[in-house]
Simulated assay, not measured.
Amino acid sequence: MPERIAEHYERHAHAFDHARRKRFAERAWLDRFLLGVARGAPVLDLGCGAGEPIARYLHDHGHPITGVDGSEAMIALCRTRFPRERWIAGDMRRVALDGMFGGILAWDSLFHLPADDQLDLIGRLAPHLSPRGALLFNTGPARGTAMGCQFGEELYHASADPAEYRAVLARTGLFEVAYKPEDSATGGRSVWLVRKPH
């Protein structure tokens, strides 16, 4: 299924980019996220799309960006817009991570993975988050799968149960700052903001 997700976004990269530039529903959450990211600290953006609007917002706030996306076409757009940043075309579950990040986010991307893969990935990301750094991602409100629709095609989404995410956070030394299930301000996404302690 994640492979089909990458193919979907590859086919519709320009249409997605055009639509994405018209909305920024996650801005308030990004502002909260950035409160936990040290000034000038690098940020890892998993499922970065074509860089609009999130990468631009991070860039404008002075954060070096490493962006990962499964669509080569999306990454090509990122490289055109922000040539000095680091862009990686690949599966976020398999990309080799090096160094530490003041912030890590996976907005509208983590939930395209099977639930168990999401939990594994959060565990793998935790050691790459700097002390006092922030992690922002969204999920569904309960364990299960759902098929959405985008550009006339079905689009796979999955979620673990909130208790399962909390167990991973506890195991990896991260703590929950905020969790808002089915946040109406973001179109019904369930949003998590977590931090690493000192």
Rank of each mutant, 00 (worst) to 15 (best):
E3V: 14
E3K: 14
I5F: 08
Y9C: 13
F16M: 08
F16N: 08
D17L: 10
H18Y: 05
H18V: 07
A19V: 13
R20Q: 11
R21Q: 13
R21A: 15
R23T: 12
A25V: 10
A28P: 14
W29C: 14
L30N: 08
F33I: 02
F33A: 10
F33T: 09
G36V: 08
V37I: 03
G40L: 05
L44M: 02
D45N: 06
D45K: 00
L46K: 04
P53K: 09
I54Y: 10
H61E: 08
G62C: 14
G62F: 12
H63S: 01
P64C: 02
I65F: 03
G67W: 03
V68G: 04
D69M: 01
D69I: 03
G70I: 00
E72I: 12
A73F: 03
A73Y: 13
I75Y: 05
A76I: 07
C78D: 01
R79P: 02
R79S: 04
P83Y: 12
E85N: 03
W87A: 12
R94C: 14
R94I: 03
D98C: 00
G99N: 15
F101A: 07
G102R: 01
I104C: 06
W107V: 09
D108I: 09
L110H: 15
H112W: 00
D116H: 09
Q118A: 13
L125A: 13
L125V: 15
A126R: 05
P127K: 11
H128N: 06
R132T: 14
L136W: 01
F137Q: 12
N138G: 10
A142L: 08
T145I: 05
M147C: 06
M147E: 15
F151R: 00
E153Q: 09
E153V: 06
A158N: 04
D161R: 00
D161Y: 02
P162E: 14
A163V: 15
Y165P: 04
R166E: 10
A167R: 06
T172V: 13
L174F: 09
L174N: 01
F175P: 01
A178Y: 03
A178V: 04
K180Y: 13
K180Q: 15
P181S: 02
D183A: 05
G187N: 10
G187L: 06
